[in-house]
């Protein structure tokens, strides 16, 4: 392990972690919004996968990261609509819906990818560049870690306080939370629970898909089946372990991201421990985290319970 922890490598791991964290963080914030509105969306993995494929196709076609982000978010909204129709309108069990949606997304993205590449693989594209922030990125240590990142990483980090303020201080945020805590109260005030839940799902799913898009733009230049590799699930765990609070969720995300990057670096350096064990780390950590961090005080009271108007 000793050679793993030289300052230069540590720096590179941490810098990569912040990048890796962006993917999970975007999804986790999306899921947090959705869950606070009462929808226990288990379809994060599938939604992210849809975002990945949409971004990949858009990049291949236009080479424009902005178009890719737009396409991914549209795919996310579509995913949110499907999940919302089943959970909010049809009152199908939230877990069953999410599981079903993941299986659908896994099959459908694979099919669409194979159809898209049937006539030969597209040329692919270059991963996007970093946006170092002048001066700040030159601070030794923290500079390269925090301020030599992609634009979307800054945006994701900025979203943490924004989501926090949205939930705490704004009227729509308050109403979304009420939908997750006590929907009868909201209905008694003449406010539609379904509209708030659809809203949270659509925005949340768009963010999740944007996470998938970032993965395609910054880390991969080709789509693979199930490329999201469980990051959607890690996002769900981060929300639970973060007790449904944005900042704590971010901390859980960073734990996963560091473990994730550790695996990548260990593979590259030929550490004595087989790399597969490093790859297991985030998943093992997620179970451990849930078993150890057992505060669930922030869990919305009506999370995952379909709301039936009397």
């Amino acid at each position: 392990m000793a050679e793993l922890l030289t300052p230069a490598i540590l720096l590179s791991i941490l810098s990569a972690s912040v990048g890796a964290a962006t993917i999970i963080l975007l999804a986790a914030l999306g899921e947090l919004l959705t869950e606070r509105a009462g929808i226990w969306n288990m379809g994060v993995e599938g939604t992210m996968l849809c975002g990945c494929l949409a971004a990949y196709v858009a990049m291949c076609e236009t080479s424009s990261p902005i178009t890719a982000a737009g396409a991914a978010m549209l795919a996310g909204v579509a995913a949110g609509l499907v999940i919302g129709f089943l959970t909010v309108s049809l009152k199908v069990d939230h877990f069953v819906t999410g599981l079903g949606f993941n299986l659908l997304a896994s099959g459908l993205t694979l099919f669409l990818f194979r159809s898209y590449t049937a006539g030969g693989k597209p040329a692919g594209y270059a991963t996007i560049d970093r946006w170092p922030i002048p001066f700040l990125s030159e601070i030794p240590g923290i500079g390269p870690i925090l301020f030599n990142q992609h634009l979307l990483t800054y945006a994701a980090l900025l979203l943490v306080p924004l989501v926090s303020v949205f939930l705490a201080r704004t009227r729509p945020g308050l109403e979304c939370r009420a939908a997750g805590e006590n929907p009868e109260f909201l209905e008694a005030k003449g406010i539609s629970v379904a509209k708030r839940q659809y809203g949270a799902l659509l925005v949340g799913s768009a963010l999740t898909a944007l996470g998938g898009c970032f993965m395609m733009l910054a880390f991969a230049n080709e789509f693979r089946p199930d490329i999201s590799g469980g990051r959607g699930w890690l996002a769900i765990v981060a929300v639970i372990a973060g007790n449904w609070r944005p900042f704590r969720t971010m901390i859980a995300v960073i734990v996963f991201a560091v473990l994730d990057s550790l695996a990548v670096h260990a593979q590259g350096m030929g550490v004595a421990i087989p790399y597969q064990f490093f790859l297991m780390l985030p998943y093992a950590a997620s179970i451990l985290l849930l078993a150890v961090v057992r505060t669930r005080s922030g869990q919305p009271a009506r999370l995952g319970i379909p709301f039936l108007r009397r």
Partner: peptide, 15 residues
């Protein structure tokens, strides 16, 4: 038609 049609079909059937 790619063989991936089948998992896609199965997912759609499920929903």
């Amino acid at each position: 038609v790619p063989s991936a049609l089948v998992p896609a079909m199965q997912g759609i059937l499920l929903l």
